[in-house]
Design a protein around this nucleic acid. Structure first.
Lengths: 351, 351
DNA sequence: GCACGCGATGCAATCGATTGCATTGCGGCC
DNA sequence: GGCCGCAATGCAATCGATTGCATCGCGTGC
């Protein structure tokens, strides 16, 4: 048990050559320097002794770790697992490993966590946890650490990103609602410090106007965070402030789910009396009651792409401007949380 | 941009001392060797120069990485995120980082992935991905790598574990069904190569017998894997083989969700005509239609505990026998997927 | 038969931090 | 006032792999 790991030196002695020869024989890039017959003996010995290169020594010498830092706000948020899976699949195909950290940008731990990653010498960073104006990230990127953002964008256009077509998604939602006959639609917008929150809110405002929806300001509430409780709070706010409306467009599925909960608490039927839409098409929302009408984003693919872009950068290629910011197409998924508006039923409700 | 990182040597030159002095001054354990005044100057210089220790050099010298490998079958399975979060929270409190890999034990990549972790010199392993008789893991543990399993157990009792009280969970489910008046209950059991599948199946058999349920063998089907599609397939198998029964006890929530889907496809109302129960209480199952009656396990806490146990082992302490295998209490959560059995309604159905 | 060249391999420096041991300097004690 | 001892710091080896350069030996060409 626990005996010393075998090193290059052990293999070298076994075969009767120098460590440098072993090193070259085991590296596909340099193997051609070594006589095939010797290389094979080395290969055999290395397997016999169960040799595993020491990654620390390799990193120290080459300044590469083959480790990528993946920073997300919270893995327990169902949006992220498919993305992570996509990232990890690509990385492991290329012999890279992912260090996963949960960290919210405003959190005290955020800096420490990123320090730890930097100290570990990660070769690159994939960031889902990011707010507009995050200076810590800026610093790391200025230090030359390759990074890609996923889902969200940095202000700094130099940081490559993979995002979804938020504008198109919101447009599809609004068209769908309009087609059903809605004309007064409320918006539970996401936090404006997050790029998706901002993009979706702006898309809502623009498209609502151009499609002729009522655009009173009191039809919008801003969520402070992206979870169910906040969805409930925001929906309550809208109902209490009493503008009449027949549908709620939420900035993401979790807010939508929260809104639906609140409607139920208040005895308002969804979709009969109030339509609700989400964004993301999280796993399982098709099984909710009611099944959620939402915008499907390709979460797994987004993860894969982000990882691929980072790999490409690490393996030498600069990214061409055209591939620096990828916007993935989205798709409207109509389920049962939207329906024709009830004819002015909401008007009757008093405070 | 991208200029060389500052090293101990840089700090040493700045202050006019030797690198070893800097090293000692910066390490809380050895700081007392250094005159406070010097230590402070070193501290200041190190901050001024933004010094970050090189983890590769540290690892090479000390043979420690402060990295833990976390191996799970699939992060996209909703059971795992809370566990991962629990693990990561504990690790980051202690200055450790988690490398996350997705790997099914039967998969070709399994060995390669574990090799990669070993090569990276992880200090320990937390395994959720594990089948009874997995020889690769055995090998690593015999090599002296500290490991803890979560959710599942290894056959080898030497590997510490944190699991849930499967037996109790199944018992609570059966008592609940019995209380409702059911007497013929089918079981969609999990794969028997997985410890939870086995434990829950055995619990089902034992408690079903002792409570006086019908225990015909055709009331049991074994799932090959743990997902919704397999749940559908198994439920179909049960219905088609036509034993009469009024409830389905599934080995986990995903199988249960699949079973419910199938019932809906066949026009069988749940819970009116057929009760269904799950296990795990995954996030969001309370919002499903119907909200799922299931067994709540403390996923986040399970993750925290596993990480804590590993930390304890790494920081010297051997685990006492009593704390080597922790079994977490579970809790029955009754929702709307279970109800009193319909009086022999199923009898009428022909092939 | 000798020199040249090149293919194959060895040598040794290097990456950056840790740590056992050596050295220095100073205060206290008799 | 000299010596002992301890506190504070420096020295140098070390971890294991990579890699530029040196070296060796052999074949080839003349």
């Amino acid at each position: 048990m626990s005996r010393r790991r075998t090193t290059l030196k052990d293999v070298a002695e076994e075969v009767g050559v120098h460590t440098s020869t072993v090193s070259r024989a085991l590296n596909p890039e340099t193997r051609h320097f070594i006589r095939p017959e010797v290389a094979e003996r080395i290969q055999a010995a290395s397997e016999r002794l169960n040799y595993r290169p020491n990654a620390a020594a390799y990193s120290l010498r080459t300044n590469k770790t083959r480790i990528i830092g993946v920073v997300i706000p919270d893995i327990a948020n169902p949006v992220f697992p498919p993305i992570i899976r996509g990232i990890e699949d690509v990385l492991s195909e290329r012999g890279y490993l992912a260090i996963l950290v949960n960290s919210e940008p405003n959190n005290a731990r955020h800096g420490a966590v990123l320090d730890a990653l930097q100290s570990r010498g990660v070769d690159g960073l994939i960031m889902a946890s990011l707010e507009l104006g995050d200076s810590i990230i800026r610093g790391m990127i200025e230090d030359g650490l390759p990074a890609v953002t996923v889902n969200r964008r940095a202000e700094d256009a130099d940081v490559p990103s993979v995002t979804n077509d938020e504008d198109q998604g919101i447009r599809l939602i609004l068209e769908h609602l309009k087609g059903l006959g809605h004309s007064r639609v409320a918006n539970v917008a996401g936090p404006q410090r997050i790029s998706t929150g901002k993009a979706r809110f702006e898309a809502f405002r623009r498209h609502a106007r151009s499609m002729g929806f009522d655009t009173s300001e009191d039809l919008v509430v801003f969520a402070q965070s992206l979870n169910e409780a906040e969805g409930e709070r925001c929906a309550a706010g809208l109902l209490d402030s009493l503008p009449r409306f027949t549908a709620i467009v939420a900035s993401n599925d979790r807010l939508a789910v929260g809104a639906i909960s609140l409607l139920r608490q208040r005895g308002i039927a969804c979709p009969a009396e109030m339509s609700v839409t989400g964004f993301n098409d999280m796993p399982m929302v098709d099984r909710f009651e009611p099944p959620l009408t939402t915008v499907r984003v390709q979460q797994y693919e987004v993860g894969r792409l982000a990882a691929s872009m980072l790999m490409k950068r690490l393996e030498g290629g600069e990214l061409e401007p055209a591939e620096k910011h990828i916007v993935m197409p989205v798709e409207l998924v109509v389920r049962a949380s939207t329906a024709k508006p009830a004819i002015e039923r909401r008007v009757a409700r008093g405070r």
